[in-house]
Design a protein around this nucleic acid. Sequence first.
DNA 1: CCAAACCTGACAGCCAGCTGAACGCCGGTG
DNA 2: CACCGGCGTTCAGCTGGCTGTCAGGTTTGG
Lengths: 221, 221
Amino acid sequence: MRVLLVEDTEGLGEAVRDQIADDGHAVDWVQTLGFAEASVQTTTYDLILLDLMLPDGHGFGFLRRLRAAGITTPVIILTARDQVSDRIEGLNAGADDYLVKPFDLSELSARVAAVARRYRGDPNPVIRLGELEVDLRDHRIHRSGLPIELTAREWALFEGFIQRPGMLLSRSQLEDRLYAFGAEIESNTIEVYISRLRKKLGRDTIVTVRGMGYRLDTHGH
Amino acid sequence: MRVLLVEDTEGLGEAVRDQIADDGHAVDWVQTLGFAEASVQTTTYDLILLDLMLPDGHGFGFLRRLRAAGITTPVIILTARDQVSDRIEGLNAGADDYLVKPFDLSELSARVAAVARRYRGDPNPVIRLGELEVDLRDHRIHRSGLPIELTAREWALFEGFIQRPGMLLSRSQLEDRLYAFGAEIESNTIEVYISRLRKKLGRDTIVTVRGMGYRLDTHGH
DNA sequence: CCAAACCTGACAGCCAGCTGAACGCCGGTG
DNA sequence: CACCGGCGTTCAGCTGGCTGTCAGGTTTGG
């Protein structure tokens, strides 16, 4: 998918861009409504991620102009506040979904994936990994035919591995998946969850790369 | 099944047409109410998918004229998310189901399949689920042979589970079934209805997936 | 053989979810 | 017109299990 990210905050913008790119989408990142307008006129996007408070105006106007111009590209709004009126107004302005900052990156991935699935009409993808069968949509896992229960956090972490099989994921990347932006964690929580996942899914499922991070064992052996 | 698709948006129309065709149905796609009226006069359809905002008028008028003419063909309405009151009005006008754009194509397939099952008088228009027998067409449920009464809301919720047995449904997905799209952010209404359904249908019928949503227990126990 | 990095069992606090109860609204009824 | 019963929604108290932390053990690399 081709994604336009409209976000003026440096740190957040980078994190979002990298995450979406890692998910396999092409991202154009602009920081003002002016650039956004120019981009949508020259390029056809499959999804727009739109921050509302921007240096040169409010995102609603941009969204309304889009819709008025007959552009039906799905739009997910990113906003700082939990203002209910914002949410309703956003949906009325033609937004498709809504993410309240701070959000964690797995949440973002999930929403973007939902749009992508809609876009491609993809059916339910079941991934096979050694003796594991993973149903991404239904959040179900079977190991040698037996169902395995994962908690919310365990799933969020494991999903990160599944979506990037064999790729090295640093601890901070994994932390960003589990926790809202900025809310860094002090202790060895990631290690604990890795441990819990290994206990449930098999010792060799996740491989430690000492000093670097973890990766999923794709040989599934 | 023979399906009439009334939808003026090019991209969406194509996607829907292809999806339904892939499901093995014959699709006629028209882009105006005028063509739609002409089509229903010359052909008998088993299902009509109806967009509401069309270049030559609003879909409700068409739907009402259909019903007034004694045509009982099932109608599924497709509409944008910003028309909150549409759902209630649509159901009053004689619609059978309701899909909010943008929707998942697999979601569409599920609803169409539900109609198909209902319409064809399938060998089993009654779904069996453990000790439950569910009659989708008549909205009747028997548990171990004894009739069970569900209220409107309870049925709306339960139907969502029945149409996608075993699939994980998030709270917001379930809320979307009960309300066109309200701001029902802070309330445990869904939990209350889950609780009531469990009381009527059996504790194990609906399984909680903590932090993620609910799913129907397909093992029926 | 040492230090750093990592693993994992245990545990207390907390939060998501469950449910009985109450309230207001609506349509039907006497 | 007042009453009544059913339905939808909200609230509050409760509970179980998830979560994050720590401590002590184990592995790895140099």
